[in-house]
Amino acid sequence: MLSPIKNDAVIRARDVVVVLNNQTVLNQLSLDVMRGEVLGFVGGSGTGKTVLMRTILGLVPKRAGSIEVLGVDLDKASERDRRSIERRWGVLFQQGALFSSLTVLQNVQFPMREYLRLSQRLMDEIAMTKLEMVGLPANVRDKFPSELSGGMIKRVALARALALDPEIVFLDEPTSGLDPIGAGDFDELIRTLQQTLGLTVYMVTHDLDSLHEICDRIAVLSEGKVIVSGTIATMLQSEHPWVKEYFRGKRGRAAISAQA
């Protein structure tokens, strides 16, 4: 929402190499994520989808290559620039990663408390707004994460990821562990929020329905590289055996017929 200009890359990864335990996980990977799009990132289990996300976030060191986020190369940036980039992204971890000793409201307020000097009243009001945006009732505010269901944890984690109104949101398997109805609701929620807040969404997922429903573009990771990227139509035309199996296999066909 900071800039009305569309179609510029907010994440630009070039020739990224990541080696973990003497195993090359990412091999000369390049990827662009455009402003305002929902990018779905797929790949077989253990191909390094999460590793790439963690590399972009700076949680996993890379051996070679460069990654620019919002036009800043995080390796070369000063500590101060890094911090300012970090408050412009929000991350939803697979298990939610809510702070277990803080209440729901305190979890959502945590980034605000750290980065902004706001009155308690404004923080309360904004945090409640965020919780309502992700579709949670007002009475969850004083609950602890251990008292919440899986779906609610994901929603609170999303509210926390959105606490500072970031420009980019990283979602690691947002619908895993949710029932199909819950997963559908969550997809819709991400779509609505993305449109309302003008977010760029980077989503690691296995959910074929999510890919069909809300992703503008899909990137497929295999053998440490992005082998195909494009719209769902591109995926359906691809002749790469894994992509073919994934999108046109039994479950893929079911998702297509559900769309029809």
Binding site: L122, I126, D165
Partner: peptide, 13 residues
């Protein structure tokens, strides 16, 4: 020029 949840909420207030 720009408006996010914080600005929108303050307007609402």
């Amino acid at each position: 020029e720009n408006l996010d949840t914080f600005g929108a909420w303050l307007l609402e207030r």
